[in-house]
Computed example of a mutant assay.
Amino acid sequence: MTEGEKTRIVAWSMELRSVHERLRKALAITQEAVASGAPPGRDLLLFCHGFCAALTGHHEGEDRELFPAIAAEHPELRDTLRKLEQDHSMIGHLLGGLQAAVDQAAGPEELARHLEGIAAIMESHFRFEERQLLQVLETLALDADPGRVFGPL
């Protein structure tokens, strides 16, 4: 194995951590915008839309690119991958609720409740995913664009 191949292999675990951290920061910025008490306006709409799009893109990339590659090399993880995909579906539903609230110009309290629910599930999901997959990602042979695998962040 060349040094470049080793770097790419280890980079998948580092990339997952990095993407999760960027999504946590995007959520925090969105929560801060809501907590400021300003009426829902263009900035808040942009924060919510950007966060929703980034998290959705991340999960779609994992479902499309990453999880099939892991399942092929580690069939013993198929139940874990199904659980993660179920989480993605649940988070997608919660994001849809947030988007509907934003579209209906919901007040800051309602938006904060949506974001709090998303934050709780997202953090639980990220921690489980990292516990289950980081070691696997350090040895995963996947030749793909990180933007397709983890979403365009």
Rank of each mutant, 00 (worst) to 15 (best):
E15N: 14
T80P: 01
C52Y: 11
A54V: 02
L45Q: 12
R64H: 15
E21T: 05
L81A: 04
R22C: 06
C52E: 14
W12F: 14
E65C: 14
E32M: 00
R22E: 02
L27D: 05
C52F: 11
P39T: 14
A71Q: 09
R24I: 04
L77K: 05
Q31R: 13
H74L: 04
L45A: 11
G61T: 14
C52A: 15
M14V: 14
P75H: 08
T56F: 09
S18Y: 11
A35K: 08
E65L: 13
R22D: 04
E32G: 00
A26F: 00
H88L: 01
E73M: 05
A54Q: 08
P40T: 10
Q31W: 09
H74P: 03
E73G: 02
R82V: 03
Q86L: 06
M14P: 10
V19H: 13
I29K: 03
C48T: 13
L16S: 08
R42L: 11
R17Q: 15
T80C: 04
A72S: 07
A28P: 00
T80A: 04
R24Y: 07
H49L: 12
A71S: 09
L66P: 14
L77T: 04
L46Y: 09
D63A: 15
P40G: 09
L45H: 11
G50A: 05
E60D: 12
L23V: 03
R64D: 12
K25L: 13
F67N: 10
L55I: 11
E73N: 01
K83L: 06
T56K: 09
A54W: 05
L84D: 02
G41I: 08
R22G: 01
H58I: 07
P68R: 10
V19D: 13
R24H: 09
I70Q: 13
G41E: 10
V19L: 09
E65W: 15
A35I: 02
E76Y: 01
F67H: 12
G57W: 07
Q31E: 11
F47R: 07
K83G: 04
C48S: 14
I70C: 08
G57I: 05
R78Y: 02
A69Y: 07
H20T: 05
L16A: 12
H88A: 01
E15Y: 10
H58E: 06
F47W: 14
E85F: 02
G41L: 08
M14E: 15
A38Y: 05
E85H: 03
K83M: 03
T30I: 00
A38R: 12
E76F: 03
K83I: 06
A26E: 03
D79S: 03
Q31D: 10
R22Q: 08
E62S: 11
L84M: 07
E15R: 11
L23F: 07
F51T: 00
H74R: 11
